[in-house]
């Protein structure tokens, strides 16, 4: 029946000539996947970040399959790892070679080892390649732990308020007060020095970030009318939290999680550097850097590559996280 030219033909009637101004401060946290994806697609730097992450993940997956699956299937001889892991003959191993395009006191670079070799004669490129797997998996798992635990703590604290809130937040603050490197190291020394505990430890150390974030979202969402309505309708608290509060906190949490993975990777690299992480001979970037310290003067290139790998990967997550933040922040869009 009605035809209107060039306007959004809204069928609801404006009930008065004095509509209230929409509150510009209301953050649009209730955004969905589709909107997020469409916004990200328009941002070149975010896409670049996504690209980097994609490549890194691909590398990690390949490394994982290579190291884990092949031996199970009985095809160890095809593992690239086997081929370059440890030179079988220590005396003949080409140690501390520089990248292919230079020469140093230890010899000439060759394209068989494009980035050079380490102090045990192992190819640096392969080790960096395999280190990706550890970096990404630890980063993602640790962040997931922090996210899940932090969400539970934060939403409970924010929703119930009062005593519960006080106690939980004090606990969170205490966790935060211990310099987290120290916390994680002590944790690992207590329970185990290897990678699993590094993941758990870093995860626990990052709980406060998410707890605080979720809590502040919950606090603002809690006052919304639809929560009141849900409560009045008799919906149980737990359902309110899960079905309404948490989905509405989607945007900032996604941003924080992405950025936090980058942070986790940096922390784990630091831990490995200090000796608390992947144990030799498993290659991890931090640990490679630690090894390289002894050879900084004669073979500086050894120190460069693992650090660059960390840098690029973390840049990827930061680009994506920034892109997400820009895409989802309504005020910047205005």
């Amino acid at each position: 029946m009605a035809t209107t030219t060039g306007s959004d033909a809204d069928s609801r009637t404006e009930s008065d000539a004095q509509p209230a101004e929409a509150d510009p401060e209301q953050p649009a946290a209730n955004v969905g996947w589709r909107y997020t994806v469409s916004q990200v697609r328009r941002d070149p730097t975010a896409l670049a970040g996504l690209g980097i992450i994609g490549i890194a993940t691909l590398v990690a997956v390949v490394a994982f399959l290579d190291q884990t699956v092949l031996p199970i299937v009985g095809m160890e001889q095809y593992t690239i790892a086997q081929a370059v892991w440890m030179s079988p003959n220590a005396e003949v191993a080409p140690q501390l070679l520089p990248p292919a395009w230079t020469t140093n006191v230890f010899g000439e670079g060759t394209w068989a080892h494009p980035l050079g070799t380490d102090d045990r004669g192992r190819d640096i490129l392969s080790r960096v390649f395999y280190g990706t797997r550890i970096a990404i998996s630890v980063g993602v798992i640790a962040t997931t732990i922090a996210l899940v635990a932090g969400t539970v703590v934060g939403s409970v604290a924010g929703y119930y308020g009062g005593r519960i809130d006080d106690v939980l937040m004090r606990a969170v603050e205490t966790l935060y007060a211990i310099p987290f490197l120290v916390l994680v190291i002590v944790f690992m020394v207590a329970f185990g020095r290897d990678l699993t505990f590094a993941m758990i430890g870093v995860g626990i150390a990052n709980i406060p970030t998410f707890a605080r974030l979720i809590r502040s979202r919950v606090l603002s969402v809690r006052e919304e009318d639809y929560i009141e309505a849900a409560r009045a309708a008799g919906v149980r608290d737990r359902n309110i939290i899960f079905r309404h509060v948490i989905p509405n906190s989607f945007a900032p949490v996604l941003v924080q999680a992405t950025l936090q993975i980058g942070v986790a990777i940096l922390i784990v690299a630091g831990l490995s550097f200090l000796g608390f992480g992947a144990q030799p001979p498993t290659p991890s970037w931090g640990q490679m850097l630690s090894q390289s310290r002894d050879y900084m003067l004669p073979d500086p290139w050894f120190s460069i590559w693992p650090g660059m790998a960390i840098l690029i990967t973390v840049v990827g997550f930061n680009l994506l996280g920034d892109g997400l933040r820009d895409a989802l922040d309504p005020r910047i869009n205005n």
Binding site: T4, G6, S7, D8, T13, E14, S15, A17
Partner: peptide
């Protein structure tokens, strides 16, 4: 009440803008 909503100023209606 006045029926409808004010159209967006990006693409105003042709002729008299209030005709819708």
């Amino acid at each position: 009440p006045i029926k409808g909503v004010m159209p967006e100023a990006i693409n105003p209606p042709s002729g008299c803008r209030f005709h819708t």
